[in-house]
Computed example of a mutant assay.
Amino acid sequence: MSLKARLKDQALSEGFASFGVCRPDAIPETVGRLQSFLDAGRHGQMGWMEERKTWRGNPTALWPEAKSIVMLAEPYTPDHDPMDNLAHPARGNISVYARNRDYHDLVKKRLKRVGRWLIDQAEGVEIKVFVDTAPVMEKPLAAAAGLGWQGKHTNLLSRDLGNWFFLGAIFTTVDLEPDEAAQENCGSCRACLDVCPTDAFPAPFQLDARRCISYLTIEHHGPVDHDLREKLGNRIYGCDDCLAVCPWNKFAQDAQEVRYAAREDLVLPNLADLVALDDTAFRTRFSGSPIKRIGRNRFVRNVLYAIGNSRSVDLLPDAQALTQDQDDTVADAARWAVERLR
């Protein structure tokens, strides 16, 4: 059995559901697409994309010694349709991936175990592992490695997994045979484009992050534009709409990692409870969660927008209590929510 075949077996035994290999220079077309995205200003406040574009568009610049990139996918498929949560405006809607442990930590530990196995196979083998925390274009690389294709919503799709999965990368000095790149299979379907509440897709296969709810609730700091606040609905961290409606999800595999299963307190949490969090209570409640990284102020801002969209006058006192908050953005969101509820 070849080293690549044994490596695949090792990866699958660690809980990964899909495996593929590509060369570090397999995505030359990404450079132009990334530059067009940046030139149009569609990255919004994510200045790190501009600062690290050389590495992001060219993996060989990130680590010249790498000869192969192993791409791996791990499912986090929800146990119910997340679109159902939109029917409860007085409750918060948190993106499926963020309802329990931080996937960065869990996936990275698995990648390191697979990488250590590879190191043990031959003298002088080197690796670097990445999980969405470095200037690595995981989705184009995964497509080049045959794991799937980037759909019209720009996320990765797979015939075998749908689109509910995390990606991880192992860069290595080992020369492994590359897999055949995946072919796009979206056809004439527009479900992901049409469902977007903020029209964040200027065209199929293009995303304007400045209008994306995931960007607005996580990456964007400061007040959200008034014309977009109502469109956030009860989404207080991320958005799953374009993922949830994809027909390829009929092939989605169940998540094997129990720590991806939603915590009970993060499935439709009460907005009144969340808006009252101070910094200490916020950090305690979201310890070990990816939500923790956006901080109390940005999170409470999102909750206040949801309160303003809730049409629930019972939440008016909760919003009024924050109209003089020390954080100007929180105070602005509270005043907007009060005005809406009145």
Rank of each mutant, 00 (worst) to 15 (best):
R229F: 08
K8I: 02
P223K: 04
L228N: 11
L207Q: 02
A281N: 01
M71E: 09
T323A: 14
W48T: 00
A203R: 13
P89T: 06
G32Q: 13
N85L: 13
S95G: 06
D325S: 14
V136I: 15
E65F: 02
A122T: 08
R42E: 10
I291E: 06
D314G: 15
E29D: 15
R101I: 06
M1I: 12
H80Y: 11
W117V: 06
V313S: 14
A333I: 08
K67H: 02
L304R: 05
G168V: 09
E257H: 14
I294L: 15
Y215W: 05
S289M: 13
Y215N: 06
T54D: 15
R101G: 03
C196H: 06
L157I: 12
Q324A: 13
L316A: 10
G92C: 05
W48M: 04
E50D: 05
V174K: 08
K67L: 09
Q45T: 15
R56N: 02
I127D: 06
Q35H: 13
R56W: 04
D105L: 03
A276M: 12
D254I: 07
R235F: 01
A169H: 08
G148P: 10
Q256A: 13
V129Y: 02
R116G: 02
W55V: 07
Y103W: 11
L266V: 05
V330D: 10
L12Q: 10
R190M: 14
A319C: 04
A306G: 05
R210W: 00
G148L: 11
S188F: 00
G233H: 06
A143S: 14
K109Q: 14
V224H: 11
A134V: 09
M71W: 05
A209H: 05
H43T: 01
Q256V: 12
P59T: 03
Q10C: 15
F166S: 13
G187L: 08
G148R: 04
W63N: 07
L141P: 07
Y305R: 06
A90I: 00
S214N: 10
N163R: 08
E219P: 14
D39Y: 02
W117G: 03
L62Q: 10
D241R: 10
F251Y: 15
D279K: 02
D318L: 06
L157C: 14
T30H: 10
S289Q: 09
E65D: 15
W248L: 10
F251T: 13
V96I: 10
V70H: 02
Q320H: 11
L141F: 08
L111G: 02
A261E: 11
T329W: 07
K53L: 00
N155E: 04
R235H: 08
N309S: 03
